[in-house]
């Protein structure tokens, strides 16, 4: 097995009495596509939010590229509720804000598209380039970074060209058709220069044809940018087509892990999706 780019250890997220993510241990191997599936409310998006720094985990650890990006030591009160066996006597709490994590090389898209609606398609991508800017506020204001600015613009243009949105570069992003908005969101995430890309239901609301195009697109950008991809998705065709391995969550717990073929034949997964046959 290849080296893991992202690791979570006993990752637990609890909101009051609800354990949304319960003792999640995943390994995302470098250069592969890993999927996270499960019924609605299984805790998939919460897992994404904890990994990308949106929430501080109640317990557990997230390691990205060998670096701990989030860690929390469980308080005794929490231990009783979650099912893990996290015994390491760590008192260390590490928190990275989402922007720091992005700058480390992990980018994401959102389930309910979050573009900068009033800005143009081009600006959406250009803004994502800002996170690696070298010029200071004054340097940038007085245009002392002309070379850098020119490079940022050229790269954004190239990226838009690559994803096929260059022709609508000057349109307002909210005026794009739905499928292109999804694509733009991915392009914007790519503009931050990630090694790991997290896609939260990229095919939501797409018809089969669009979904197929998206599958091809994901594989294409993975090869082109040397990415590792971690995605949440409900369209099983897409997941089974492109994933190298799959994690299945239900009620916050990991109920299965394996290759697409293994998951398709897994009893527990079928039960979780279809319910238990009482007769």
């Amino acid at each position: 097995m290849r080296e893991a780019l992202l690791l979570t250890e006993h990752l637990t997220m609890q909101f009051g009495g609800v354990v949304a993510v319960d003792d999640l241990n995943i390994k995302i191997p470098t250069g592969e596509i890993t999927a996270l599936i499960g019924p609605n409310g299984a805790g998939k998006t919460t897992a994404f939010n904890v990994i990308t720094g949106g929430y501080q985990p109640t317990c557990g650890r997230v390691i990205f590229d060998g670096q701990i990006i989030a860690e929390n030591h469980p308080r005794s009160k929490m231990k009783k509720i979650y099912s893990g066996t996290y015994t390491e006597p760590s008192t260390q709490t590490v928190v990275h804000t989402p922007d720091q994590i992005t700058r480390l090389g992990m980018a994401r898209t959102f389930q309910n598209i979050r573009l900068f609606k009033d800005l143009s398609v081009f600006e959406n991508v250009l803004i994502a380039k800002h996170c690696h800017i070298k010029a200071s506020l004054f340097g940038s204001t007085f245009r002392l970074n002309r070379a850098e600015e020119r490079a940022m613009r050229a790269e954004s243009e190239a990226l838009l060209d690559r994803v096929g949105l260059l022709s609508s570069a000057n349109e307002k992003s909210s005026s794009l058709p739905y499928g292109k908005q999804r694509r733009l969101e991915i392009a914007r995430a790519l503009a931050t220069g990630p090694r790991l890309l997290l896609l939260d239901e990229p095919a939501a609301g797409m018809n089969p044809k669009e979904t197929d195009e998206l599958s091809a697109f994901i594989v294409e950008i993975k090869e082109a940018f040397g990415l590792t991809i971690f995605l949440i998705e409900h369209h099983m065709n897409l997941v089974m087509d492109i994933s190298d391995s799959i994690y299945v969550l239900d009620y916050g717990k990991t109920i299965a892990y394996g290759t697409p073929a293994e998951i398709q034949n897994n009893e527990r997964v079928i039960q979780a999706y279809l319910g238990v046959d009482e007769s």
Partner: peptide, 12 residues
């Protein structure tokens, strides 16, 4: 436009 998205794009 969107604080959460801006933060996810690496803007502090």
């Amino acid at each position: 436009e969107d604080e959460i998205a801006a933060e996810a794009m690496g803007i502090s």
